[in-house]
Simulated assay, not measured.
Amino acid sequence: MLPATHTPAPAAELEALLAQRFAQRTLVLNDSHQAIRETGSGPAVVLLHGIGSGAGSWLEVALQLGQHARVVAWDAPGYGDSTPLPPLAPKAENYAERLFQTLDALNIEHCLLVGHSLGAITAAAFARLHPQRVRRLVLISPAQGYGDPARDIQRQQVRKKRITALEQLGIAQMAAQRSAAMLSPHPSVKALEWVRWNMARLNPQGYRQAIELLCGDHLLRHAPLAVPCEVHCGEADGITAPETCLSLAKALGAPFTLIPDAGHASPIEQPCLVAGRLAFALKESLTGSVQ
């Protein structure tokens, strides 16, 4: 195993690119700080990452989209330099309120809103609460959540497993052990290292709050949606399996497509394909087309 202080070459190159072309800045909101990364200009695309990641995971997607859009990715509350939310066990509405404040601070009136994994629950909640701010909703490998009372046993098991892993392994070991599960069976070295780099930067407090969101809420609580929506999933996703994402898409009345040669972290593993899907969704949102 490489020493914790050593960054493998592909990740070091991406880290340098992140600083140069998708740099972080911190917004001062009413009662909190919110870290974002931004590139490009034009119609807004807002990217919400998953539970084991951060704004940096969108780097290559953002650089492609930034050629014809204003692309903003946040570090969710409690991630990176973003202030955690006040509740110990926040609901999606709490994350959606922070997102509302963030978009106001950025003077973004309308956006294509993209939620990956756990970020999909926040995205769906925001679209339900503020449909006038969302041109179109894109969910990539959406986490369903375990907050439905019918999933109570599974909820308890998942919560215990994740908190135990955090307490016994710590963030660094979790990143080392879980990174491969985020990708397809034969990922590139670059993709594996970038998943690990992002996961290794989790903050325990923010991660604990995200566990509570995952286990205490569920995406379909925020349905039906009043905005156009589409669902995508990596064809080799072993975390939010394609059949589960398809069922969720049907429940939302949304079109569904697979992302070839990708696992759960498709924005890292197949950034060109994901950027292409988002560019098309942006075009659809601006022309008013509905699939």
Score class of each variant (00 low, 15 high):
residue 270 Q to E: 08
residue 187 P to E: 01
residue 280 F to T: 15
residue 233 C to E: 02
residue 273 L to A: 13
residue 152 D to M: 10
residue 126 F to M: 02
residue 230 E to C: 05
residue 276 G to E: 11
residue 279 A to D: 15
residue 86 P to Y: 07
residue 164 T to S: 13
residue 282 L to M: 07
residue 91 K to D: 15
residue 47 L to N: 03
residue 68 H to D: 12
residue 273 L to N: 12
residue 276 G to Y: 09
residue 252 L to M: 14
residue 121 I to G: 04
residue 90 P to G: 02
residue 17 L to Q: 10
residue 130 H to G: 06
residue 104 D to E: 13
residue 74 W to L: 11
residue 104 D to F: 10
residue 19 A to G: 15
residue 271 P to M: 02
residue 290 V to M: 12
residue 189 V to G: 12
residue 91 K to F: 15
residue 108 I to L: 08
residue 69 A to T: 00
residue 178 R to Q: 12
residue 285 S to P: 06
residue 185 P to M: 07
residue 138 V to K: 01
residue 17 L to M: 10
residue 144 Q to E: 15
residue 140 I to S: 02
residue 42 G to C: 00
residue 290 V to W: 13
residue 160 K to A: 13
residue 188 S to E: 07
residue 281 A to N: 03
residue 166 L to F: 03
residue 187 P to Y: 00
residue 276 G to I: 12
residue 218 H to T: 09
residue 208 R to V: 02
residue 270 Q to W: 05
residue 162 R to Q: 13
residue 174 M to D: 01
residue 151 R to N: 15
residue 87 P to R: 09
residue 246 L to Q: 09
residue 265 A to P: 12
residue 266 S to E: 06
residue 95 Y to L: 07
residue 63 L to C: 05
residue 134 V to I: 11
residue 184 S to I: 03
residue 145 G to Q: 05
residue 263 G to F: 09
residue 17 L to Y: 03
residue 287 T to K: 08
residue 84 P to H: 00
residue 255 P to W: 10
residue 47 L to S: 03
residue 11 A to C: 12
residue 106 L to M: 05
residue 78 G to D: 01
residue 185 P to L: 08
residue 70 R to E: 06
residue 57 S to G: 15
residue 228 P to E: 04
residue 162 R to S: 14
residue 171 I to Q: 01
residue 107 N to C: 08
residue 189 V to M: 14
residue 111 C to Q: 08
residue 162 R to K: 13
residue 139 L to S: 07
residue 40 G to C: 03
residue 275 A to N: 05
residue 269 E to S: 02
residue 181 A to W: 03
residue 18 L to R: 05
residue 192 L to G: 06
residue 228 P to N: 06
residue 12 A to H: 12
residue 18 L to C: 02
residue 62 A to N: 08
residue 95 Y to G: 05
residue 127 A to C: 10
residue 103 L to C: 04
residue 172 A to K: 13
residue 76 A to E: 05
residue 164 T to D: 12
residue 23 A to G: 11
residue 26 T to I: 14
residue 162 R to V: 13
residue 113 L to F: 04
residue 86 P to K: 08
residue 72 V to A: 07
residue 48 L to T: 02
residue 113 L to A: 04
residue 2 L to D: 15
residue 141 S to W: 03
residue 49 H to G: 00
residue 119 G to N: 01
residue 68 H to V: 12
residue 51 I to E: 11
residue 197 W to M: 09
residue 291 Q to A: 14
residue 14 L to Y: 10
residue 69 A to G: 00
residue 169 L to W: 13
residue 204 P to C: 03
residue 22 F to Y: 14
residue 161 K to Q: 15
residue 208 R to Q: 08
residue 274 V to R: 00
residue 127 A to P: 09
residue 261 D to E: 11
residue 42 G to N: 02
residue 164 T to P: 08
residue 23 A to N: 08
residue 64 Q to A: 09
residue 248 L to S: 07
residue 85 L to Q: 00
residue 162 R to L: 12
residue 103 L to D: 00
residue 149 P to V: 04
residue 61 V to D: 01
residue 229 C to R: 04
residue 229 C to L: 06
residue 265 A to S: 14
residue 32 S to M: 07
residue 289 S to Y: 14
residue 226 A to V: 06
residue 154 Q to W: 11
residue 14 L to G: 08
residue 146 Y to F: 13
residue 232 H to I: 06
residue 62 A to H: 05
residue 72 V to Y: 06
residue 231 V to G: 00
residue 77 P to T: 02
residue 173 Q to V: 04
residue 68 H to K: 15
residue 182 M to V: 06
